[in-house]
Design a protein around this nucleic acid. Structure first.
Lengths: 252, 252
DNA sequence: GTGTTTATCGTCAGGCAGACGACTATGATC
DNA sequence: GATCATAGTCGTCTGCCTGACGATAAACAC
């Protein structure tokens, strides 16, 4: 405990973002291509330095706006506009995680509805949504036949932890609605669960569960037919944040 | 993303520890008295700087040994000796959380069985186990009639987050056994749940639940009567880490 | 109209939790 | 030694929730 404030070892502190969304029935994460060494040309998670006057959450929110244009809303604030959900994930500080210097990275998890094409400082080709399965597999080839090199730094580990957090958190919270637009149908919400968990769910039991949980969904009165088939009721996310009893993820 | 590695803003990085145990039917945390400014004389969570060659988990384990003599075991390693459970909790980085300089603190959560008196560099009076309820209440007086000043820095927030993590984690994991000695009875385990949650549980239903969950408890064959009453079977923690279905925390 | 797709309502059986009765095995007290 | 207090352990019963799955409804494509 007794320490000399003038002799502390200096660290660089960054925030890295795991931004997840659901596109084409697949859980996708935002990846940016690195322009410099080390790991030049490799895909990485978006992130950057925390500024001297910034809180960690502020830094993460700023990076999120810079990368996606999404306005993060605080989890403690009431449900809002089309802002993404943003929460702290974990902190990574292995001495060798960045070969240049000692960097401690506070990773954050953001959940967003399906978005238009990502932007990365105007350079569209240096940022993309990629299925997490593709980003996490070692070797092999991605959808475009592009070599799927592992993510830079320890970002595969960070992404993996973020995905696991999202998978478990939609079990006992209403967070799955963060992947949906403001108004959505029960079927769209079910497809979110199916994409995040990678399983098929019974539409009838799912419907019973989500409509029977008080505060989870609020009907807006409208209907839509954008999925084909019988028109579905439109809902908005209710005020409830915790699901009790939770949504059960199928075994095995 | 484009940044100048030679121009990053320097931060101090520390680890702070929320060390929890159950004593006399109460959830207690380890607190140390601060010897210097700021917050001189106030109680705080144990912690210290991360060294240049240390991982975050290593730094937390080192601090834990220094403060309690406990040997932390990695959650990924198999169940071991009398080591405490140690996991990362969250990171706190408000620019003003330390008035001297910019400090980012990676808080860790440790769960330990009831221990002999704490030691703090040989000075027994500067470290103690205090009920979390006492440490978290603003104003008022502690057990010894001592003024219960709020914890230093943002440590009340950190402690509160750690307690909440522990409360929720014993629901769906076998982590409550980390509060018990190597061999323990069902009643002792129940009293851990009762102390951490602050509720009373039905001994019969609790017994049915924990003995009926495969892999949670392994009978050792011995019995004990240290609690008075009919001798109780002794158990050891089983290999299972996740409880499915979870232990349900009573409502309201 | 027929077929296809998706949404929604119902039914039924099994599992689990809460409430609680009953019995057992120790030590403490008279 | 009988009685009491204290804990531990085994059962029973009821209600709720889930998984499996049948049936109906409302749109579109042909």
């Amino acid at each position: 405990m007794p320490y000399d404030p003038s002799a502390f070892p200096p660290f660089a502190v960054t925030v890295d973002l795991v931004v997840l969304t659901v596109r084409r029935h697949a859980l996708c994460a935002l990846a940016v291509r690195r322009g410099e060494q080390p790991f030049q040309g490799r895909w990485a998670l978006p992130g950057g330095f925390v500024r001297p006057d910034e809180d960690l959450a502020q830094a993460a929110a700023r990076e999120l706006v810079e990368e996606t244009g999404l306005c993060a809303h605080d989890p403690s604030a009431p449900a809002q506009d089309n802002g993404a959900h943003l929460e702290q994930l974990a902190t990574y500080g292995d001495p060798k995680r960045d070969p240049r210097m000692r960097v401690v990275s506070v990773a954050h998890l953001a959940l967003a509805p399906d978005l238009p094409a990502p932007r990365a400082g105007g350079d569209a080709k240096s940022a993309r949504w990629a299925p997490v399965e593709e980003l996490l597999q070692q070797g092999g080839y991605g959808r475009d036949g592009e070599q799927a090199a592992p993510l830079a730094f320890d970002h595969a580990q960070i992404l993996s932890d973020g995905v696991e957090r999202a998978r478990s958190k939609i079990e006992y919270s209403s967070l799955a609605t963060a992947f949906c637009p403001t108004e959505f149908t029960v079927g769209e919400l079910r497809r979110v669960y199916e994409a995040v968990w990678g399983v098929a769910l019974d539409p009838r039991n799912f419907h019973r569960k989500v409509t029977g949980t008080p505060g989870f969904l609020v009907p807006t009165g409208g209907t839509t037919t954008r999925q084909g088939g019988r028109p579905a009721q439109l809902f908005r996310a209710g005020g409830a944040t915790l699901l009790n009893p939770p949504m059960l993820r199928p075994e095995v």
